[in-house]
């Protein structure tokens, strides 16, 4: 047990150190949602009217509406970023060092996941503080209640990144992930517009959005920011997280040999 905690601490500390060394990554992770919040949302405020839907009890501005989606955006991009670093680690050999540890492989991968999720949460809170400075605030209790929701969503999206990293054989292929995973996942969700609006345009797109686990992660965060629990969204996020983690464990299984390199 002590050994497992030591491994978690060491891997989390290493992720933190890597993050501190890559300051531009921190800035980029914040600039992206802030541009959406301060530029995109300002432009679309008038065009996109928000009706009163749970968890909101009154009309909210568009900026307020997209805050949970932008929190999700940070977690999503960070999850993919950490999968990029896993592919890099594998090419550079340090992943091999990790995988030859006598600790169970599933635990090593979970530690990686927890480490990168904690970094993502730190970025989300920084984003929420900056949003508050611009007058976009949530109920005080929401800032606390959102923590477990961010953790769950971060694990789910990090799990997706981990699973993808086991499939991606070369760093150069990572651009494809951006086009085929991140953008569809983000835009086909409730991050930028409520699902009822999507249904008005296309039922099929609405159904795809409703199926997208990122939608459920965003809704879970949205409710948590108002100190409420969306059990349905939480269940889907947990289930998707377990599926992604199982896929990652399968991908990194030495018998499957997805991490194979021709010797």
């Amino acid at each position: 047990m002590r050994g497992a905690v030591l491994v978690l601490r060491a891997i989390a500390a290493r992720e933190a150190l890597r993050f501190v060394r890559q300051r531009e990554r921190f800035v980029a992770a914040l600039v992206r949602p802030l541009v959406w919040l301060l530029v995109f949302a300002a432009g679309f405020r008038a065009a996109l009217g928000m009706s009163i839907i749970p968890p909101y009890q009154t009309y909210v501005t568009y900026e307020t509406y997209i805050i949970p989606g932008l929190c999700g955006m940070i977690l999503l991009f960070n999850g993919m970023q950490s999968s990029l670093s896993l592919v890099y680690d594998r090419e550079m050999g340090s992943m091999r060092l990790l995988l030859t540890s006598p600790m169970p492989r599933w635990w090593l991968l979970v530690c990686k996941l927890i480490g990168s999720t904690l970094i993502s949460i730190l970025q989300v809170y920084t984003f929420l503080v900056i949003a508050a400075l611009f007058g976009i605030t949530m109920p005080l209790a929401g800032y606390v209640a959102v923590l477990p929701a961010l953790f769950l969503a971060g694990l789910m999206l990090g799990g997706l990144g981990l699973a993808l990293s086991s499939f991606i054989q070369q760093l150069e292929n990572f651009a494809g992930v951006m086009n085929f995973v991140i953008f569809p996942m983000f835009f086909l969700s409730s991050a930028l517009y409520p699902l009822w609006r999507m249904a008005e345009s296309s039922e099929i797109l609405h159904d795809i959005c409703a199926f997208n686990p990122f939608t459920h992660a965003v809704e879970m965060i949205r409710f948590a920011l108002y100190a409420q629990v969306n059990f349905g969204a939480m269940a889907v996020t947990c289930a998707a997280g377990m599926v992604f983690l199982a896929l990652a464990l399968w991908g990194y299984d030495p018998a499957r040999g997805m991490i194979r390199r021709k010797g």
């Binding site: 002590r2 050994g3 497992a4 030591l6 491994v7 060491a10 060092l97 600790m103």
Partner: peptide, 10 residues
């Protein structure tokens, strides 16, 4: 030290 932790030694 990082490697020692991976071996469960701290």
């Amino acid at each position: 030290s990082y490697f020692a932790a991976l071996q469960g030694i701290g």
